[in-house]
Amino acid sequence: MSLTGACYRSIRLALVAWMTLVLLAAFSFGGLLLNVPRIPILEHTARNLYFHVPMWFTMMALTAMAAWQSFRCLKTGDLECDMRARAAVHVAILFGVLGLLTGSYWAHYTWYEGTDIWWNFDPKQTMAAVQVLIYGAYFALRNSLDEPEKRARISAVYNVFAFVTVPFLLYVLPRQMESLHPGAEGNPAFSEITHPVMRLVFYPAIAGFIGVAWLLYRQRVRTYRLEAAADRRGSEALIGHMH
């Protein structure tokens, strides 16, 4: 799949417009349009549903993409797939960190209001941090491998292996533990506490953030391609010099 520059730029423009609309819709309050139902502790911060939660959806999409590209890399040995997996993991870490920061900030002013707590080892929060660490280790592993083909293969194995353990981290365990997040033990599931009106913004916000992540991913893949080409030129020049 290759895109021309013009096509890429028009998608980018459409995404900017889309995200602007999402932002406007998210903040259109007090009026008739999309008034968010008030919940006591949350108050207006219920709107963070449009920003904090899509971070995790985006991260999941990116890690699934990375695992798929790693799988393809194992099957075909194609270094292009390795670059794509690497780019997807890199952007996934960005969204994971943003999700952690926003979640911690949100919780400080709602769940932990009136305390000094910023981080309380809520299971979902901790598991998300662990997931970011797992993908950080992916880059540490890459750095300790020098030969490109071997690096692609070994890190692809680790990436697929990491991806199959993620469901335990994000879905099995948090449901068995006490948590303040929806869907945990004793808490109502997400669909039961969310007003239908909020979905009108929530789903477009997820789509928009995944689109933004796709742009960042393409940009990253392009740098990796250019770097690989530069490396190739460098080694060719070296060989030419030696002859």
């Binding site: 998210a26 207006h44 920003f51 943003l98 949100w106 940009q219």
Partner: peptide, 26 residues
């Protein structure tokens, strides 16, 4: 204001993160 600024701060965190990332890669 019923914690509206918390939402603003969250949006700004995300915005800043994405913008810094874009510019670094760019």
């Amino acid at each position: 204001n019923d914690k509206l600024f918390v939402v603003l701060a969250v949006v700004l965190i995300i915005w800043a993160g994405i913008v810094v990332y874009i510019f670094k890669v760019d």
